[in-house]
Design a protein around this nucleic acid. Structure first.
Lengths: 108, 108
DNA sequence: CGGAATCCCCTTTGATACTG
DNA sequence: CAGTATCAAAGGGGATTCCG
């Protein structure tokens, strides 16, 4: 299907690679599966990530329409991140990958 | 399933991320779907990759049992790369991802 | 609270040259 | 043919500091 059986493999899914790439991206996405969360919630939930890296990655994911960022003007400010429909599909794919990876690690 | 609906998301599929990560890894794997290929074939097939990066990545994929490297002693030397069973499963997953990515890019 | 700015580090990539 | 050696560049990550 698509270009994969052709002679050259110009990958149309570079978008996916860009989205999954990086140490934290998939973890962030999976953390939002059960519903929207705030910045500090994500920060606490994802063990070991720095605020800067979390912020950077959230921006990238927002630009790619994987999640939405909603600001509730208040003091203190509240910002909520939520998966888009596409982001949810994306999360499902990551879970499928996990199924494979689980068996894979069993083999090793 | 697994840990993804738990509170913390320590990813058991880091192995997958490590395998898919990098600019060329998936392209290399897909290039081998239709059967084993030699180093120079891959080099020509994958547009823009340098010999060093191709070599580095092939080694990593071999270490992770995604592909096998077979040397046929001859002059000039011949080396053949071939997906393992696990590597083939991996390639199928990448193709599935592509299906999603294809629709995703259509939306954008 | 939710970041942005800065600086350093490390890994990966890229370009070039060389070899059994 | 199938690489390796070497070095420079680029990108992402980590720690710290500052801000509305």
């Amino acid at each position: 299907m698509f270009l994969f059986h052709a002679t050259k493999y110009e990958c149309p899914f570079d978008c996916f690679i860009n989205m999954i790439k990086g140490k934290w991206r998939t973890t962030i996405i999976l953390s939002l599966i059960n519903g929207p969360k705030r910045f500090s919630q994500l920060h606490r939930l994802i063990n070991g990530i720095s605020a800067k890296v979390l912020s950077d990655n959230l921006q990238i994911l927002e630009e790619n329409h994987i999640l939405t960022r909603t600001v509730y003007p208040a003091i203190p400010p509240t910002v909520e991140y939520c998966l888009t429909e596409q982001g949810t599909e994306f999360a499902n794919i990551i879970e499928d990958i996990n199924t494979w990876a689980y068996h894979y690690t069993k083999i090793d």
